[in-house]
Simulated assay, not measured.
Amino acid sequence: MDMLRSMKIYSRVAESGSFTGGAQQLGVTTAQASRAISELEAHLRTRLLNRTTRRVAMTDAGARYLLRCQEIIERVEVAEAEAGDARALPTGHLRIHAPSAFGQHYVVPALARYLRKYPSVRVDLTLSQQSPDLLEEGYDVSLVVTTGRLPDSGMVSARLCTMPSVLCASQEYLERTGAPRTIADLRGHNCLQLRTSFFAPDKWVFEGNPSGGGMFELPPGKLRVNSVDALAVAVRESVGIAPVPLLTALPMLKSGELVRVLPGFELQTMTIYAIYASREYLDAKISTWIATLREHVEGAMVSFHDITGREDLVPAG
């Protein structure tokens, strides 16, 4: 027996005082309504309605039971409405994971915009380089940076942007040492190393120049770090030359704190994805967050288009 269906039928019949009237409101036959209430009474071992040929009347037990049924039905309807609204109105708790550097420079500013627009959402943001298990650790969205294809995880992925790394130095450093004009000229410079899974530890692979790219075997350097932010700061402080991921380099290139070196070349293209569990019945807080972040990143990339001369770094939508 479907208890909720039986409660709804009983409520309609009791409120209307008629099996026929109650049945019509729910789109069932009179016989179906009568049978549902008889089964309900048998289940409860209590008579809920006194029947005559013309009308029905509630017993005392039936009147008390009607109040409880109305409360239960109302709560179920509220729960259904709230669940349905989750697909239309962003609300509730949004749990996000992001890599540290990208999170600080782009996720946090995008979140500020998002929270102003959707004040009913609460956000829990975790910044770390270790990608989480979304389902096991309870995240709604994880942002992933990769240089290749995403592993097959059964999750849904949305591409946010593709970005290269660009070789940078400070103006002070270049004035002191001179600017390299070719890849081979880098041998006379202090080449800083980024120790991450994205970069080979002993070489830089250049691409993007019409005359072709090239591979540069790194000489022993004075500094090696495992943080993109730390590397960018070291370059800004005139320690040496290094490839910096474009989204990290953009603000400093705009302000003049960094200068592009060998601007015809790029290194190590990376793609940023938003990963989430399912495309079906996607919660509004997830879809609107991804849209807000993509819009924020696109704005940054477009505003610095003149730095790279490329229009293919951001997906159309």
Rank of each mutant, 00 (worst) to 15 (best):
L167C: 07
F206R: 06
T126I: 12
A88V: 11
A274V: 03
R47H: 10
I275Y: 03
A88G: 08
A83E: 10
L246Q: 15
G138E: 11
P151R: 13
R149L: 11
P119Q: 06
S38C: 06
N190A: 15
M7W: 12
R294D: 12
G299R: 02
G264F: 06
Y106H: 08
A158L: 07
Y118C: 06
R87K: 08
R181S: 08
E295V: 00
S100Q: 10
W289F: 15
Q70I: 05
H105V: 11
G213F: 15
L282K: 15
V121S: 03
E298Y: 12
T196E: 00
V123L: 04
S34K: 03
L111I: 10
R159S: 05
M301T: 00
A284S: 09
S157D: 03
V145L: 11
G299P: 04
S238D: 01
A42R: 03
Y139N: 06
Y65C: 02
V259R: 05
V121I: 08
L250R: 14
S100N: 06
V144I: 11
W289C: 03
W289A: 02
I183E: 08
L282T: 04
V145D: 00
A79F: 01
Q171F: 01
A277I: 07
D306V: 02
Y173A: 00
H97I: 04
S38Y: 02
G256N: 09
G17A: 09
G221E: 01
R149A: 15
L253A: 01
A110S: 08
A23K: 04
S16W: 03
S100R: 01
V28A: 03
E257F: 00
M270V: 05
C168Q: 01
T91M: 13
G212R: 07
G148H: 15
L223F: 09
T52S: 13
L49G: 03
M252A: 07
M58P: 14
R87I: 14
P220V: 07
V302T: 12
E266C: 00
C161S: 11
R35D: 11
L44Y: 06
V156H: 03
I96Q: 10
E207W: 08
S100T: 09
A86H: 06
V205K: 06
R113W: 01
S18Y: 04
P243T: 01
A23W: 11
L4V: 14
L40A: 07
C191H: 05
E280W: 05
A33L: 05
T146G: 09
A291F: 04
